[in-house]
Amino acid sequence: MQALLQAIATMDMPLDAQRIFHGRGGLHPGSEQWALDAFPPLLLLTSFEPVTDDTLALIHEALSARWQQLAPEQPLNWVFQCRHEGRTETRLMAGSVPEPHVVTEQGARFRVHVLKGQNHGLFLDMAQGRRWVREHVAAHPGGKVLNLFAYTCAFSVVALQAGARHVLNLDMSDGALAIGKQNHPLNGLTAGASFMPHDIFKTWGKITRMGPYHLVIVDPPSYQKGSFVATKDYARLMRRLPDLLMPGGHALLCLNAPELDLAFLQDQMQELAPQLRFEERVANPAVFADVSPERALKVLVYKAPEWTPD
């Protein structure tokens, strides 16, 4: 746990939502169970193993001491979540949680919820993916974007901010899309986005008719029973990509499954959509460094061939 305490003692004042300490990457022996995130104005500490009250008291002391240095005029707000053997326990340890709770990232604003569930409304490891979308769309403004497994539509927000003409957001969760709908006006976006709370695999006709798209974003769960299992369902998406993309269009393929390596995506793309050319792997935020890059989040960019006259 010493590495976690050192990270707390040296952390800067967090302004944007971000990860502060990533023990899960295996680069801090003895601290693998810990993750510390900032969702200003609070900190969220997650443990993937049971924790004693004495340990939590020690961490509280460290957080209090650093907060007194960083912002003595502001209260320390922090939440603890333990995830172990399929159970999740969340506790407010100090201060309070704002309602609504809105955080920022690169100038965009998002609603989050840290006291319920394991997914808090914004996946911090995807920050560089959102940056890539922002920069890509800014360089190719006026395009149409398809956002599959849209969750709370963070990709849609940054794409529209960067100049996309329209973003179609699909997700099976009405609740997630409801937050996504709130995220758009929160950023002054009152047009350009549509939302479909549908099963993607039962909606291909409508998705195709509304295309083709300049950018297709695929960010599915790695395993969600009854919805999506990467090992069998990702291939079904890959087969559709060539028909969904404009000539010269791009696809952003995301996968957060430690047990599946880069070759899982690249080999299947070579087999199922060989006309799409691999361009790059988007780097993860530095704080999410992993002892095995193959286990970390994978975000790959592919490009469709340009149109050429016969």
Rank of each mutant, 00 (worst) to 15 (best):
P40M: 07
A139L: 00
M238T: 05
Q118H: 03
H184T: 13
I20E: 03
Y234D: 03
T308V: 15
A94C: 10
L43Q: 04
Q69M: 11
T203R: 03
S156G: 10
V167C: 03
Y223W: 10
A191E: 11
I179D: 00
V51S: 10
Q268I: 03
R24H: 08
V133M: 01
G163M: 07
M269P: 06
P197Q: 04
L265Q: 09
M13K: 00
T90N: 00
L36N: 04
A139Y: 07
T231C: 03
D243A: 13
A263D: 00
L36H: 05
Q18P: 08
M172D: 01
V229S: 12
L76G: 00
L5D: 09
M246R: 01
E85G: 04
P242N: 08
V114S: 00
E306T: 14
V282Q: 09
P258C: 06
D290R: 09
L215Q: 05
A71I: 06
R134V: 03
C254E: 02
L44G: 07
A159I: 01
P100H: 14
A251G: 12
A3H: 11
H113A: 14
N256M: 02
R91D: 10
Y213M: 05
P41L: 10
N284Q: 09
L255S: 07
V299A: 06
Q18L: 15
F228C: 11
W67R: 02
N169V: 08
I59A: 02
P221M: 00
N169Y: 01
R209I: 12
A162N: 04
A251Q: 04
I59Y: 04
K298R: 14
A176R: 08
F264R: 11
H22K: 14
F195I: 14
E105M: 09
V157D: 02
L43N: 04
T46C: 04
G86Y: 06
N284S: 15
M13Q: 15
N169G: 07
V79N: 03
E99D: 04
H214A: 15
